[in-house]
Amino acid sequence: MLERDITVSNRLGLHARASAKLVQALQGFQANIFITYRGKEVNAKSIMGVMMLAAGLGAQLRLRADGPDEEAAMAAMVDLFERKFDEGQ
């Protein structure tokens, strides 16, 4: 199991399109992937789950991946956050 903390750095936070992008990027991985924010843990492959976090700019998230491809899944997830979901700001 892998865990990593990350801060939401895109201006709009985990809004609908960013959540959809994240879910779509993770769909192909076998690992179970979770995001925890303010004590709430959700399945990162569930669009309504991710949106339910209502995580805005600056939110501190804990990412967790557990499964055979957990490293690649975590890398894909971190990459999306670091690229600010390709939103440019």
């Binding site: 609908a16 959809a20 879910v23 569930s46 669009i47 309504m48 949106m51």
Partner: peptide, 9 residues
């Protein structure tokens, strides 16, 4: 909209 998005997911 949540229903439709969830279906499409």
């Amino acid at each position: 909209l949540p229903m439709l998005l969830r279906v499409l997911n």
